[in-house]
Nucleic acid binder design. Structure first.
Lengths: 206, 206
DNA sequence: CTATGTGAATGATTTCACAGCT
DNA sequence: AGCTGTGAAATCATTCACATAG
């Protein structure tokens, strides 16, 4: 399959959110223009994004809301449940354990890890904190599909290496480091400092 | 000044992080190639990014680490302190209150708001939870430079409207909505659901 | 008549490649 | 000799515009 731009994939996620809103409101047909308006883009962009994956609309009419939603879920691979492990039981890690919106598309946080003996064995937001030492053993038993890294930067790479070794293929990284992983492993990094600095730059010229 | 691509600004933030690492290690000269290797990009990219803002290196030698760091801080507008208000004292909001790394570049969380009477007046991570009703009054007294929105999607836009009215010019948004703001206001949205869906897509083709 | 799907055109970003300093 | 700074070339992403289907 042709290589699809990151930006296209992100817009598809957005469209899906809008389609779900429309579905809730009982709207069952939508035009590329309606989706575009909702997402601060253009109708041509919407149609082009979709065209990489097939043709899902009816000319002269638009798209069936439930059908297009279903197609986008297929494209994004959302037709299954994902087991998510959160690595790091600090404030942010604990907050992510039940961040509403995770479950919505099948992302279930199933475990939470830390290395601090004071935390291990306690519960954070209803989930037991497990010992980081047991990562490999636990993963061998029941592999996580996705690991969310919420540890200090200094230990992030080492933990990722261990998780990669254990078979984890996808990471959402909140540690302010550039992670190195093999080609067959996917990483998305969310850097709050970086977002704030982009805001700072944005504030400069006004 | 010429319009600079978002991607360039984000890479500059990255370079800055690397330069600070180098500085800590006592390295005082660095080549575009060294920065590139560290940031998963190319030396030409690094030089091009910098060239939009001036020429900071010495041919045949490279860049002075402290000087380049200082130049990038200037470019990004980091030569000042930013007052940050966190709107929403849920798990995530509380976690952000002292997310290490915020202070590092001059982003200081100075206030935390919620609308839940049970929370108002209590402390979360050492910061008093203020009443959302008082937003306007508080902002009139001491305006925040940046507001971080960590509320349910349903109230995010309304709060942003109020904050924009009160004079806030920059938002970091964690609510899963597309915020509408005037042209002179900057917004960056971090959508965890969207990142996870991008991971899901990434997992599909392997 | 309306709105999709898509090549072709435009615009933006990245990479190349080399002249010019140190 | 080594590495920057930068036009020119190549690649990638978006927008245009229209033929086509309902």
């Amino acid at each position: 399959m042709r290589k699809i731009a990151e930006s296209t994939v992100r817009r598809l996620s957005l469209y899906l959110r809008f389609l779900e809103d429309f579905e809730e409101q009982g709207i069952d047909t939508v035009s590329s223009d309606a989706l575009a308006t909702r997402g601060h883009t253009t109708s041509a962009q919407v149609r082009k994004d979709l065209s990489f994956f097939g043709s899902f609309g009816k000319r002269g009419l638009g798209y069936s809301v439930p059908e297009l939603a279903s197609r986008i879920r297929d494209i994004l691979g959302l037709g299954r449940a994902y087991r998510v492990a959160v690595i790091g039981a600090g404030n942010l890690g604990a907050a992510l354990v039940h961040f509403s919106g995770f479950d919505r598309h099948g992302f279930h946080v199933v475990s939470l890890y830390d290395s601090d003996p004071k935390k291990i064995g306690t519960e954070r937001n209803g989930l037991a904190v497990r010992d980081q030492k047991d990562l490999e053993a636990d993963m061998a038993e029941e592999l996580a599909d996705i690991a969310i890294i919420v540890t200090p930067a200094s230990v992030a790479q080492e933990l990722v290496d261990r998780l990669v070794g254990a078979g984890v293929k996808a990471f959402l990284n909140f540690a302010p480091v550039q992670l190195k992983v093999p080609d067959d492993v996917v990483v998305k990094t969310v850097s709050l400092a970086l977002e704030l600095e982009a805001l700072s730059y944005g504030l400069r010229n006004r």
